[in-house]
Structure formats: C-alpha cells, structure tokens
Amino acid sequence: MATGAKTDFTELAEDFGQKWNRFWFAPANPLPVCVLRIFVGMLAAAHFLELGQGLNVWYASDGVVPPAAVRRLLDLTSSGVEYRYSYLDGLPVSSALVVIHVLAILASLAFALGLLTRISGLLTLAALLAYIHRLPQIAGHVEPVLSFLIFYLCIAPSGARLSLDWRLFGSSKSKATLAWIVGSSDAPEVANVALRLTQVHLAMFYAMMGLTKLYGDAWWEGSAVWILLAQTQSRPVDLTGIRRWGQIGEYLINFWTHGIVYFELAFGILIWTRIGRPIVLWLSVLIWVSVIIATGHVLFGLTMLAANAAFLPAAVFEPFVRRPRVPETLPAAAAA
C-alpha cells in the first residue's frame, strides 16, 4: 500500500514536472518578444520625452525636492534600507543633465530599433530606474510596468527578429557569441521563459490593481469614475454632462466603475483559459481606452495594452513581418 502511494506521488510529481517544463521551457518563437520590444522601446522613449518637460523642476538635484529631502521623506515614510540609487542625485540644472537625458532617449530608441538590443535595453532600464529613484514619491503609474517589461525583454532574445541586430549579427555563425550577447540569437527556450515571466507578472499586476480598488467605498458603490470625472483640475476631458442623463447617466457611471474593477480582478484568471483569453484581450482595449479618458493616463494605458501582446501567439504577428533571410531552425511545433 505504501508502495502504491509512493508510485502515485511519483506520478504526480512527474506529471507536475512535465507541465512545469512545458509551461516554462517549451521552445517558443521569439517574434512576440521582438514585437513587444518595439512597443516597449517606443513607449519608454515617449516616457523619457515626457519627463523632459519637468526635467529641471523635478529631476535636477537642485529641483523642487532635493535628494537630501527625498531621503529624509523616505526615512519618515518607509522602513528598512531603501536601495534607491540614481545618477541624477548629483546633477543640478545644467547642460550635463540635458545630455544625460538625451542619452536616455537615444538608448530607448536603440532598444526599439533593436540596435545592440540587450545592452540598449539594460541602459534604458538603468535610465528609467534613475528617474524613479531620484524622486520615488511622485513616480507615475507607467514606471513599474515599464520596469518589468524592459527587465524581461533584456532576458529574452528580443533582438532576434525585426531588429538591426538581426541584420548585423543574426545570419553569421562566426558572430554567434556576439549575437547571444546583444540578444539577437534565436534562443527559443529563453524566449518562452521571458514571455511567461511577462505573462505571470502582468496577471499578478492586474490582480493588485483590482485589489487596491477594493479598499475604497467608491469602487463598491459605483461612483469612482464619477469622482474622477468631477475633478476640475486634473480631469483630461469634462464629461460631467453625463449628469444631465439622470438615472441612465448614473447607471452608466456605475457600469463603467464596476466594469473596470471586475475586468482587473478577472484578468488574472480568465487570461489563462482558452475561451477567456481572447475575450479579456478584446475587452482590455475598451477598458483601457475608457480609463485613459477618465484619468488621462495615456502612456500607462498604452503600456498596459502593449503588454497584453505577450499573450498573443506568434501567428498573429507573422502576416505583418517579412520572413527572415536565414531559414528557421525551430521545430514546427515550437514555431506554432
């Protein structure tokens, strides 16, 4: 009997191991991570361009909140060691600050173009983190999402397709090591690991966004979207005319509010189901457009939509890209 139980456990462990390996280590087409790299690189560049508007005010060391004040505020609001390092802490309003900022934009554009992909990706991440750690109290909604997307895209062979690296190094066997370093080599297992990490992290992120909303009565009562629309200083568009629709308008606000919360709570579960995945992906377009209208978080909404591309199969992108000159060595199953 004990032997039978042991066999059952062994089979269970074997089964779990096979599923685990299939989920994380099955070879995957790197095309989705390459497409994601283009989106994320462009969004990072847009983010840096947008940061440039308030560069001297917020990020210069002699800006509104100097680094010493940031550290004192962190001591007062957080516990433990901060582990926040930023090269911006030592840069006052100067041409050096502008040059460093332009370099950050160039690094993100190089990442989008797939030029020295892994290196430009790491530089983009370092620049992004420098701005965040310079003044973490006012970091926006988009930064945490960009951080993990760039981090995983640096692990992935995100320069394997649709990149300048592929043109420079991809076709030559003599440059295989260099191609691996810059991230342009076909590494189907690594592509899958990075894609899966993005998917799991994103699902957890949606769950976190949904759960934090449950702390407030406004999301339960269905009035949260109205409160956002009623902010005269920060709303992007004035939609308070909905009030004139009376009861229908109130129901619309309730529906809009509940829709956002239910979507965020359901995303992390339904995205793993065969039927649910296309539904939540289509729904996400609607939800994020509505969130952008209500809050004005354009970059954040676009980044979340771009991140959803991690859940799309490679076949979706294939019709839009030219076949690479080097024949694919992937097995048919992996390419699918």
Partner: peptide
C-alpha cells in the same frame, strides 16, 4: 525596490472616494 517591482507610492486605485483623493 531596486528594480521598482514594488510600486509602493503609486495609487493604482486612482480614487477611493475620500476627500484626500480630490484635486
């Protein structure tokens, strides 16, 4: 914190309906 996986200061709830959340 170093890689900013912990979005500790960012209000992903946008508003909770408190006076604190007004402009």
């Amino acid at each position: 914190r170093l890689l900013h996986f912990d979005p500790e200061f960012t209000p992903y709830y946008y508003t909770l309906g408190r006076p604190l959340d007004d402009d």
